[in-house]
């Protein structure tokens, strides 16, 4: 009996299987590359060879692609990333009071007290400091992203980089390179600038107290962890499955819905072989002009959403 959790994010799609005690038995980390459906099919192909549909007790989805995914795979719980991340962190440690989560395009702060989410914030106007930006900088410097953080740790005297805006941070980095600063000092400076940006924008006005969890893809960057620790003045913990926390949270949340006596809506691993088509159109039924998305599997419509009035989505057969 397993709980399946899927987190379809901007950069990566994570799939996990949890056992009854919520320990991870299987994890898949795939790049979304803007094609959520194909990536899930790819992931399911891998899982299909090892597991049977009947072994899945409940399915939860989260991430920015949660709606389309829930139609595709049949989800019992469709939850936002904030709740999912908080649930996963609390499952590991009830004492956690702050969660710093930095993913591909989003950065978030979640404030918890005594096991309840008290407050949260997300980046609104700027994506500096998120995974995509770091990816791009690593590529520009021709350093594999996996080693990016280690470079930062080698630095002895970090350079100050302007971190208010991703574009300006990049120009400033180039400028500092032209001046001849060492690469590791620039990378360390960048990490510090991004942490400053995070603390001043996303975490503005929030009380960060211990114990702090750092999760999301960017937590892999040891330079960022070090920069957070030096800015905050205390240790920041990175949970073991830091890049899977969203999916783990979704799986745990799904177990709660099915507990109430429902049978899972899971549509089976076989969708890996289906021919799935997605299309969108602008409805001209009224001046609202909703953008409606439809999802077809082997010629049958399995999902339809985006219309406000329910004209299209209520026609659904499933």
């Amino acid at each position: 009996m397993y709980y399946l959790g899927v987190d379809v994010g901007s950069v990566s799609t994570d799939i996990v299987l949890l056992d009854k005690s919520f320990s991870v038995v299987e994890e898949l980390y795939l790049k979304t590359r803007g094609k959520p459906i194909q990536v899930i099919q790819e992931g399911f192909k891998i899982l299909k060879s090892k597991y049977d549909d009947k072994q899945i007790t409940a399915v939860g989805v989260t991430g920015s692609g949660r709606n389309i995914t829930s139609f595709l795979i049949g989800a019992d719980a469709v939850k936002n990333e904030i709740t999912a991340h908080a649930t996963a962190a609390l499952n590991i440690d009830k004492e956690v009071s702050t969660i710093i989560e930095i993913g591909g395009q989003d950065s978030k702060i979640i404030i918890l007290r005594e096991g309840i989410v008290l407050d949260f914030a997300m980046n609104t106007v700027c994506a500096a400091g998120t995974g995509s930006f770091l990816d791009r900088q690593a590529e520009r410097l021709e350093i594999p992203i996996e080693e990016f953080g280690d470079y930062a740790l080698k630095s002895t005297s970090p350079v100050r980089i302007a971190g208010r805006c991703a574009v300006f941070a990049e120009s400033d980095m180039i400028h500092k390179q032209q001046l001849g600063y060492k690469q590791e000092d620039i990378i360390r400076g960048l990490c510090e600038a991004l942490v400053r940006n995070y603390l001043n924008n996303v975490a503005k006005g929030k009380e960060i107290i211990q114990k702090v969890f750092f999760q999301g893809g960017v937590a892999a960057n040891r330079g960022m962890k070090a920069a957070f620790e030096s800015a905050l003045g205390f240790e920041v913990y990175i949970p073991p499955h830091y890049n899977m926390m969203g999916a783990i949270g979704a799986a745990i949340l799904s177990s709660e819905t099915v507990k109430k006596g429902e049978v899972t809506k899971f549509r089976g691993f076989n969708i890996a072989q289906s021919n799935v088509l997605q299309s969108s159109f602008e409805c001209d039924g009224c001046p609202n002009r909703c953008e409606v998305v439809t999802l077809e599997e082997n010629g049958n419509t399995i999902g339809c959403f985006g219309d406000r009035c329910g004209k299209h989505s209520s026609k659904m057969t499933v």
Binding site: N80, E81, I82, T83, I116, F120, M122
Partner: peptide, 12 residues
């Protein structure tokens, strides 16, 4: 992002 915030607020 807007929807995520509303949903998360309701959950909270």
């Amino acid at each position: 992002g807007y929807l995520t915030r509303i949903e998360a607020f309701i959950d909270l």
